[in-house]
Amino acid sequence: MTNSSTAEPLLEVRDLQVEFRTKAGTAQAVNGLNVTLHAGETLAILGESGSGKSVTAQAIMGILDMPPGHIAGGEIRYRGEDLLQMPDERRRRLRGMNISMIFQDALSSLNPVLPVGWQIGEMFRVHRGVKRREARQKAVEMMERVGIPAAEKRAGDFPHQFSGGMRQRIMIAMAIALDPDVLIADEPTTALDVTVQAQVMRLLKQLQEEFNMGLILITHDLGVVADVADKIAVMYAGRVMEASDVYSIYSSAAHPYTRGLLASIPRVDGADERLDAIPGLPPALTDMPPGCPFSPRCAFATDRCRTERPELREIAAGHTAACHYAEDFITAEEDQHEPA
């Protein structure tokens, strides 16, 4: 029935505003976020702690803690339908069936006192009304699909009996059990060792291709983004600072924050130069500077930056940045490169 054309986005977030009411005042965790996701596409939302990336994921998934959280405005359209306006019952049905999520910490996301096979089977029992025996069979199938050896035998095991990488696979099995269109992965490999991280990212990519899912990858790791993402949105203090296809960000970042991030990470294939650290700290969300939120840490900030908040605007085809001087950074770079 919902055989939509590929041009129609799966998910469209428009001007999303999320606030947290705290004793210290209202914290603007997400402030005017716009992103679009198509089927088969991987969108990376990159940011440091407190940038609002996980809150964005929770708002899309509908699992935001409310209160203290509060969606102050905007819309989240899934296949054209606003998730924020629909009745709770309908939204609950979409969650898990159509939009699904995996979390960073698999050990605390799984129920420690239930066998994993039962927990995966629950997806089928609750959403599809499948009987126990069949649900178990399907759970074993899912475990095989995500590469858990001896799945039949291990379906009766408890989460603590699995290694970190295997637990993350179980979470993935659960998340994709009902063939969702959209999968949100919140730091899926941050708690894992690098060799296991490679396994899990490869699995996610394979499954995405197989099911033609839209994948939203929430991460702080510029390396992982470079490996798997198609598009990227860089968040800082609740706002998108820069968004584009993944290649443009790495080759011609326009926002000083993005440029600073790229300069501050050591590379495994790189030389021993001194890192260009970004000085200072992100602003408190309850006490945002009036102008550009990055201006207190920005080496290029002018009076205009400190007073007038730059809007996210298009600076090249498919490349947006929220900086008054974005074009200058790009042209300066071209000047540097051309003579060579």
Partner: peptide, 21 residues
């Protein structure tokens, strides 16, 4: 297995993915 922050190297780097734990 270490991801490198450069999308142009995607699929170009030799990658050995170890099986198991």
């Amino acid at each position: 297995a270490v991801p490198v922050p450069d999308p142009t190297l995607r699929g170009q780097r030799e990658q050995i993915v170890l099986a198991g734990d």
